[in-house]
């Protein structure tokens, strides 16, 4: 390493390089592992000076600001599910008992739907809130890549956020977005061209920043999820 490089490494760690010099030097670091090592070593030494700053107590207000920018938290999630009629005893219902509610709901719902429409879904998934195992939405998946979402909870969606419906056709494909919505009601979404839905296929709804997940994959907390079953 040249003494020029050592000098630049020093100025870089001290934060004294101008914008252009810094960019050029960073490009040099990226292509020179010996230089990168020297910079990291020097930086580690200097971090001892940072460690002498007496830590302040964590500020809860600062955390609130950070959390607000992340979107809704798991705790906010409970508030999202606006269910004033839910009995408090439901919170401790064992999963088996909750599952029987799911079945009952599914059956009742099927009766209603066969009266209303002649079109049969290929698959139905009852999406359940994992925290208390109560059903939150039903997804009917049709052969033409469309789904019908029936909300069972009156989801209250904060401004700037949307609910995004996902499915996992298989592990290789990964999660695929079927669309977003902001109004908890019955709606139809048409997803991309996918293989016909199969038994056990995962469906879930996550909370994402508007107008939808920035990465094309679920990034926010899972509101409800469930696996597809074939109607009899």
């Amino acid at each position: 390493m040249t003494s020029d490089q050592l000098e630049q490494a020093g100025q870089y760690v001290l934060g004294l390089l101008g914008d252009d010099e810094r960019r050029i030097f960073e490009a040099e670091i990226a292509s020179d592992t010996e230089l990168a090592k020297a910079v990291n070593k020097l930086r580690d030494h200097f971090h001892r000076l940072d460690d002498t700053a007496a830590a302040l107590p964590p500020n809860p207000e600062l955390w609130n600001k950070i959390e607000a920018r992340l979107g809704s938290s798991p705790i906010d999630l409970a508030a999202l599910r606006n269910r004033p009629t839910a009995s408090p005893s439901r919170a401790w219902l064992p999963f088996a008992a909750a599952a029987s509610i799911v079945v009952a709901l599914g059956v009742g719902y099927m009766v209603g739907s066969t009266l209303g429409t002649t079109r049969q879904p290929e698959m139905i998934a009852v999406l359940v809130n994992e925290a208390d195992a109560t059903p939150g939405a039903i997804i009917e998946a049709f052969a033409d890549d469309s789904v019908r979402v029936i909300s069972l909870d009156n989801f209250v969606i904060p401004p700037g956020q949307v609910l995004e419906v996902w499915t996992l056709p298989d592990a290789d494909t990964g999660p695929v977005s079927l669309g977003t919505f902001t109004d908890a009601s019955t709606l139809r979404l048409t997803g991309p061209d996918l293989p016909a839905p199969h038994v056990g296929q995962l469906y879930e709804i996550t909370v994402e920043p508007s107008p939808g997940s920035p990465t094309g994959r679920p990034t926010g907390p899972i509101l409800v999820k469930g696996f597809a079953k074939q109607p009899v």
């Binding site: 940072d50 007496a54 302040l56 107590p57 500020n59 950070i66």
Partner: peptide, 24 residues
């Protein structure tokens, strides 16, 4: 892996130290 509890734990561990460094 999008674990918010982990972010909250990191905040508890590290935010006070980092604020002090930034404040200098």
């Amino acid at each position: 892996r999008r674990d918010r509890n982990a972010l909250a734990a990191l905040f508890d561990h590290e935010s006070g130290r980092l604020v002090a460094i930034a404040q200098r």
